[in-house]
Amino acid sequence: MPDVAGPEELNRVRSTVMAALRDKADAAEAVKVVCLACVELLPVDGASISVMTDEQHRATVYASDEIVSRIENLQFSLGEGPCFEAFNTQRPVLVADLARALALAWPAFAEEMIEQPVAAIFAFPLQNGAINLGAMDLYRRLPGWLSPQEVALALALVDIATTALLVLQLRALDEDDGEGESWLVLSTERKQVHQATGILIAAFGIPAEQALARLRGYAFATGRLVDDVARDIVTRRIAPTELDQ
């Protein structure tokens, strides 16, 4: 197996990010840790993270160098590019050799890249189910694939960035409820949290992120665990109306 960073390094990145958030770091400081970790641990030259709701509403939160900053700006001004594709399709977009790639969904952006020292681009969506937060772009100067292990590592780093942005969006660390960010684990094992989120979406006609925030707010206000409240909602022991604000 090639030499790819192990779980210790990932845990180090995760705890650095979470510690920064506890110290009231803003989004830029938190995702900077992740971007720099990408550059350090992966064979890429630059990394950036942007938050967006659609092609019109987006902002680069952090860019590790001038080139990746230009990559973001170009995508934004053209309204196309790998980060939008990753965001819209909810899948990573991995282009190992821009010069040889066929049928790209963003021809104008690809054209612009010819003049840049950018040979490969890897874009990953930041998402939790139907909650889309943005995308991370990685670039390298020389063409070449990320190995499966490197993609796995990139995905783990993306999860850390996603968790950080969710924490900030839901202001989850503003109140110390003893759970910290643990309930935000992006996991299918917390099925009932996702189901309860869906129930609240339907009950109040609100978007997923607000439903999740309401679930969490209720748990905090009643001094209970998010998982327990979710279970009670799913099993109909708590009516959604009790979470009305």
């Binding site: 909810q90 990573p92 998402q127 992006l186 099925k191 996702h194 869906g198 129930i199 339907a202």
Partner: peptide
């Protein structure tokens, strides 16, 4: 796998929507 897992989360959310409605 990651895409599949994220789909799972979305599917759970969707189940919640339908279960309620």
């Amino acid at each position: 796998l990651q895409t599949a897992l994220n789909s799972r989360i979305t599917i759970e959310q969707a189940k919640g929507v339908l279960a309620y409605a």
